[in-house]
């Protein structure tokens, strides 16, 4: 039983150590701003299409599915409220994070993993740079800035998706009604929750991606394994964390 637990506990300990070094690194010099902006471009601009698409369709689908239930009560006009709350609180942050986990946590794991197995990480240390500062920190900073922005965008596009469905497919709903109910439904705590979540997800996504990349062993096969693990672990953490954060906000 103890043997069985040893590996995951050790992995978690190493993850915490890396996280501690990276977080301490955030306030220490040196800063490699070039790398930060490159990563922002890669993660932010690069994820735009996929984030916009998922945002749009998740909003549209919400409106479509909820309209059936609302019809029973003759309350189709309230569809804007439902779309707004689910998108801003849950679907926007979680779906965006899952997309970025699939695109970028995997990308970080495979990039750093390839560097690890070809001795580039060792070379980096031998030639005077700390890989945590040069590789992990820029990815952490870039994701932390970019993921909340992507989430806001996904939320907005999702609302537009819901709006189109409400106007075109649902009877008894006007555009003005849709936006009106959506606007009134949102409180400040929804916005706070909707922005806090992507920020925390960003930290987890980037650190998990870098962590699995940096501990890669065993050649190309190892790189593939690290990539898969990074995506799986990052995605699981996203859904677990969204529950925990949601629980805290609900009880407040």
């Amino acid at each position: 039983m103890l043997e069985f637990l040893k590996a995951p506990v050790l992995t978690f300990q190493e993850f915490v150590q890396l996280s501690a070094r990276a977080s301490r690194g955030v306030v220490l010099k040196p800063y490699y701003w070039d790398d930060v902006f490159t990563q922002m471009d890669l993660i932010g601009v690069g994820s735009l299409p996929v984030v916009i698409l998922t945002g749009f369709f998740s909003g549209a689908v919400m409106a479509l599915q909820m309209s059936r239930a609302l019809q029973t009560y003759g309350a189709t006009s309230q569809v804007g409220m439902i779309v707004a709350i689910t998108l801003v609180r849950e679907m926007g942050p979680v779906l965006t994070a899952l997309m970025v986990a699939g695109r970028n946590s995997s990308g970080m794991a495979s990039e750093l993993g390839s560097m690890k197995v070809t001795e580039q990480i060792d070379a980096m240390r031998a030639l005077g740079t700390d890989p945590v500062m040069k590789l992990v920190k820029p990815r952490l900073l870039a994701t932390a800035v970019v993921l909340p922005l992507l989430t806001v965008l996904a939320d907005f596009v999702g609302l537009v998706g819901g709006y189109i469905v409400a106007c075109v497919m649902l009877p008894l709903t006007t555009g003005a009604q849709y936006w009106n109910t959506a606007w009134r439904a949102l409180g400040y705590d929804d916005i706070a929750q909707g922005l806090l979540k992507p920020f925390i997800f960003a930290i987890v996504l980037s650190l998990v991606g870098c962590f699995y990349g940096m501990r890669t062993t065993g050649g190309t096969q190892g790189v593939g394994r690290a990539t898969t693990q990074a995506v799986v672990v990052a995605s699981v953490w996203v859904v677990v964390l969204t529950f925990i954060i949601g629980r805290i906000f609900v009880s407040m």
Partner: peptide, 11 residues
Amino acid sequence: GVLFQEGGLFD
């Protein structure tokens, strides 16, 4: 100064 086995060049 060090030369790594695989070269360790940044590709």
